[in-house]
């Protein structure tokens, strides 16, 4: 007769300030290739949202078409998602964020979706400072159509087939800075710590966050002649700084080390602590940042981290002076003019 061995008590999963476990932030199972950089990004979105105690029902996820655009299904099932048409994610985020300004908007796009077919919508969403985290999962190729070059592919880089890219790349980050974006960052999907800190800061930011994540395509662009392979990116990744993010509610409790650390404060009181690794890089200096990024790109390096930050710019709903409550749920009493008002309008037309 066997006796059951007493099982060890299962430790309760840790919860965040809202009482949610990390499991509450997950989505459906990924259907991307094993080892895809995009899944690493998804994991950090889940971690950052959990750690920042984001209210899941307020999260709205948007995407266009492509491998990256499938990922909103893989995180935060508590939130609504809208997988739309190719290159048009930004306009979807624009409409929904105007309809309900209390939503927390995450757009996931790719280098094809944003830098080619969707370039027009990308630049105009940034210009308008739509309240959203705009993640570009950037691998230099079209994965879902089996490996054609995208517009971020480096000049001279090779496809698996041997085809060479003759055109210069478009850099979403310098472009975003040029367009007036107040939060521009680049990360490598292979550096979860950095991505986590930036995503947490991004959740606290009010306007458009442009986050370009170099995310190697293990199937079509991970070979030796690629400048977007894991090995190549890892070897050429130059983190600018160590980042710490302190949510507004924790500011009192956290001791910020004096000395080399620069502090950027958001309108809600949250702070980003930036401890420089790369000497002389100043993420609040717009033109200096552009110059440094261009210089590093010319050397074939990826500067990663918070490339530019200016947290003072008002997001679109504020610029439009919208009412505080969601437009979506305003009542007829507030929306429909009275019979007397119609009469006044009619009188003026007589």
């Amino acid at each position: 007769m066997t006796t059951a061995t007493p099982s060890a008590p299962v430790p309760a999963a840790p919860t965040n300030k809202l009482g949610f476990t990390k499991q509450d932030y997950v989505g459906s199972k990924s259907t991307l290739c094993a080892g895809c950089g995009h899944d690493a990004i998804t994991a950090q979105i889940i971690n950052a949202a959990f750690e920042s105690s984001i209210e899941g029902h307020r999260v709205t996820k948007y995407s266009g078409i492509g491998c990256s655009s499938k990922t909103p299904a893989y995180f935060m099932n508590q939130g609504w998602g809208f997988n739309s048409v190719h290159g048009r994610m930004p306009s979807i985020a624009t409409g929904a964020s105007l309809a309900n300004r209390t939503l927390i908007n995450i757009g996931v796009s790719g280098d094809g979706d944003s830098m080619s077919i969707g370039m027009g919508q990308f630049v105009h969403a940034v210009r308008r400072n739509i309240p959203m985290i705009y993640i570009i999962e950037d691998n230099g190729v079209y994965g879902l159509t089996k490996g054609q070059f995208s517009a971020t592919a480096d000049k001279g880089s090779h496809l698996k087939s041997g085809a060479v890219n003759d055109f210069p790349p478009i850099d979403p980050c310098t472009l975003a800075i040029e367009l007036g974006c107040g939060f521009v960052a680049r990360c490598f999907s292979g550096n979860p710590k950095q991505l986590n800190a930036i995503l947490k800061a991004a959740f606290a930011y009010q306007g458009t966050v442009v986050l370009d994540v170099i995310s190697p395509c293990v199937t079509f662009n991970n070979h030796d002649a690629s400048t977007r392979s894991y090995k190549h990116v890892k070897d050429h990744d130059f983190p600018l700084h160590d980042l710490g993010f302190i949510q507004y509610s924790e500011v009192e409790d956290v001791e910020i080390p004096a000395g080399q650390t620069e502090i950027v404060t958001f309108p809600d009181g949250s702070k980003v602590a930036i401890k420089a690794i790369h000497e002389g890089y100043e993420p609040t200096d717009r033109f200096g940042a552009m110059k440094a990024i261009h210089e590093s790109m010319a050397k074939g390096e990826f500067l990663t981290g918070l490339l530019y930050i200016n947290p003072t710019q008002p997001p679109l709903p504020e610029m439009l002076n919208l009412v505080d409550e969601p437009l979506a749920t305003l009542g007829e009493d507030l929306l429909k003019p009275s019979p007397a008002e119609l009469d006044k309008i009619m009188q003026a037309l007589m």
Binding site: S84, R88, S91, T94, G95, A96, L98, A99, L327
Partner: peptide
Amino acid sequence: GVVLSAGWAGARS
């Protein structure tokens, strides 16, 4: 895009 996503989110667009 704006019209349909705003409608999706509950606005009259």
